[in-house]
């Protein structure tokens, strides 16, 4: 006598992977993996914390939600999206990583990223260094003056802040005005030489957005909206995001 057929009981429980598929266009192609491992061959974070993109996706597909979402590896992914670029099936692994980050209690997320996001929320500069509007203005003017004097061919170069009606709104990694101010003028020079009409904003000049890397959607949006509003208020046509 044949044994009775095995019946699979109950509904399959919704997994972390299912939830992420629901919010992504085409489910992020997350169920199309051919397990070829191209993602892992090209990933700078492969092998860190005993994890790689293929393993991460396979574990998620197997419903190992705890192991996947709690892996410290989710914070080692740089979000560079190279895995999507090389994936034959265009699978959106970085978004899966992002959603895994978002499952962490905010206070347990890595201190460096958390602290930088919180700094950016302190004032309207968007700067992860917490640099104030006045300090930024002072550094830009000081550096500009120095270059105008030292390099006569750039004596007419400008680095305006809040110039009404400029075509381009430029932001700036906020580490540079604080620790590497000489990193700023090369881009000013290019813009000067091509005759671009550009401006920084006193608000929203900080280009980095650690709140995005923190997977803190509300704060990410807050920081982004300040910069976008400043660009709109100044009547700029193009937002040049340098980060």
């Amino acid at each position: 006598m044949a044994e009775e057929a095995i019946k699979l009981g109950g509904k399959r429980k919704s997994t972390f992977l299912d939830k992420v598929k629901e919010i992504l266009p085409d489910g992020g192609n997350l169920n199309l993996c051919l397990t070829c491992g191209a993602c892992s061959s090209g990933c700078p974070a492969t092998g860190l914390a005993d994890m790689d993109p293929r393993k991460f996706l396979r574990m998620a597909a197997l419903g190992m939600d705890e192991e996947v979402t709690k892996s410290p590896w989710v914070w080692m992914c740089t979000g560079c999206q190279r895995c999507i670029y090389v994936c034959p099936m265009k699978i959106d692994i970085p978004q899966l990583v992002y959603e895994a980050r978002a499952t962490w209690p905010r206070e347990e997320r890595p201190k460096g990223i958390l602290g930088s996001c919180d700094m950016a929320l302190r004032n309207d500069s968007g700067s992860a260094m917490g640099t104030s509007e006045d300090d930024f203005k002072f550094v830009v003017e000081d550096v500009l003056e120095e270059y105008q004097e030292a390099q006569p061919e750039f004596k007419d170069m400008q680095a305006p802040i809040d110039k009404q009606g400029a075509e381009f709104f430029l932001n700036q990694n906020s580490r540079e005005p604080v620790t590497e101010p000489d990193e700023m003028p090369p881009l000013w020079k290019i813009l000067h030489l091509v005759g671009a009409d550009w401006t920084y904003g006193s608000k929203g000049w900080g280009g980095e957005n650690y709140c995005m890397f923190l997977a803190d959607n509300d704060s990410w949006e807050h920081v982004t909206r300040i910069a976008a509003k400043q660009a709109d208020d100044l009547g700029c046509k193009v937002f040049l995001n340098t980060e």
């Binding site: 491992g37 191209a38 061959s41 090209g42 492969t46 092998g47 994890m51 790689d52």
Partner: peptide, 23 residues
């Protein structure tokens, strides 16, 4: 499936891929 190929001085090719044994 490897992704990156780098040329070497002797025209050999260095290829980066994930070793399944140790990940």
């Amino acid at each position: 499936i490897p992704v990156d190929v780098f040329p070497m001085e002797n025209d050999s090719l260095s290829m980066r891929y994930m070793n399944e044994e140790d990940g």
